[in-house]
């Protein structure tokens, strides 16, 4: 059965081809193609091109791949579906176009998922990021019962109303690729169509980082790092440097995730840590909005 779910004699796209196809598709629809943000983060939403650009009045369209780190999801390379490091393909469109659902379905077609052969469904899924102080409504998109994309209309980020509203499409690239390639183990994914598999690239990474996340990460250093990032973020906010401040917020968030994976954070402490990250995120968003106001005025004058 493997492979050709796209029907007819279409070649099965490799993992990297999938990314190239999505990039080309969204570039044609006015998206600025960005590269991954160079920091560890739990989701593509944290990239300033989404989290911060979703705020304020300016139109914005972009697309990028973002590596995501979820330390607690590590399985030492043993689980065929779970990874502590994986890729999201992120598309943001602001304001959300009226035909954004059709645009999205077009991208699936471009990937070889024909909507007349597969059961594509928009299933309620409200999105919320307690650490970003953000929420939105939308769906998880199912293809034959498999969740392939998170589709969200942002309503708030950092506690601020999003107006206009940004549509965020987050493709889970590994899942999507497994689906398109008909592969049941992520490590068997064909990466480049020329014999390199996902396992060749990432299996050792998963093993070593699972050990790091669960066993070796220095919790004292992480707690210390969390506190320092918090302090530095505040100092940068005082200096009205929204973007560097936000970097510190991302850093704090990732260190919290690592501490969580190490199991050293109790349930009550957990809420408190998340509250601290959220406070930083909110203030960074406020600073970002303020800095953009200034720039608009400068541009206008």
């Amino acid at each position: 059965m493997a492979g050709d779910r796209g029907g007819a004699a279409r070649a099965v796209p490799s993992f990297q081809q999938l990314i190239l196809t999505l990039q080309a598709y969204w570039a044609e629809r006015g998206c600025v193609l960005l590269q991954p943000y160079d920091m560890e983060m739990g989701a593509g939403t944290f990239h300033p091109a989404t989290a911060l650009r979703a705020l304020g009045p300016e139109p914005w369209r972009c697309a990028y791949v973002q590596p995501c780190r979820r330390p607690a999801d590590g399985r030492y390379g043993d689980n065929p579906n779970r990874l502590q490091h994986y890729y999201q393909f992120q598309v943001v469109l602001k304001p959300s176009p009226d035909d954004v659902q059709d645009m999205y379905l077009g991208s699936l077609a471009a990937l070889g998922i024909a909507s007349d052969l597969h059961d594509i469904r928009f299933v309620e899924d409200d999105w919320e990021s307690p650490t970003l102080g953000a929420w939105g409504l939308g769906w998880e998109v199912w293809c034959d019962g498999m969740e392939v994309t998170q589709f969200t209309y942002f309503q708030q980020v950092g506690g601020f109303e999003c107006s206009p509203v940004t549509a965020e499409l987050t493709y889970g690239l590994e899942r999507l690729a497994m689906y398109v390639q008909g592969v049941e183990n992520v490590y068997d994914l064909d990466w480049n169509g020329e014999g390199i598999s996902y396992g060749d690239v990432f299996l050792q990474n998963e093993r070593e980082f699972s050990a790091y996340n669960f066993e070796h990460a220095d919790t004292d250093a992480l707690m210390d790092g969390f506190a320092k990032a918090q302090v530095e973020c505040r100092a940068l906010l005082d200096a009205k440097l929204a973007l560097p401040a936000y970097d510190q917020c991302i850093k704090a968030s990732h260190m919290f995730n690592l501490l969580d994976a190490r199991g050293v954070i109790s349930v009550t402490e957990r809420a408190a840590y998340m509250g601290r990250v959220r406070d930083l995120a909110k203030d960074c968003c406020a600073a970002w909005l303020a800095s953009r106001d200034g720039q608009n005025k400068a541009a206008g004058g």
């Binding site: 779910r5 007349d116 059961d119 498999m146």
Partner: peptide, 23 residues
């Protein structure tokens, strides 16, 4: 329960769902 009829009688949909269930 699918939301569409397909020319393959749902074969691809069933295969996909079985695969998801396995995971």
């Amino acid at each position: 329960v699918a939301n569409i009829e397909t020319k393959d009688g749902g074969a691809a949909i069933i295969a996909g769902n079985e695969c998801v269930l396995r995971a």
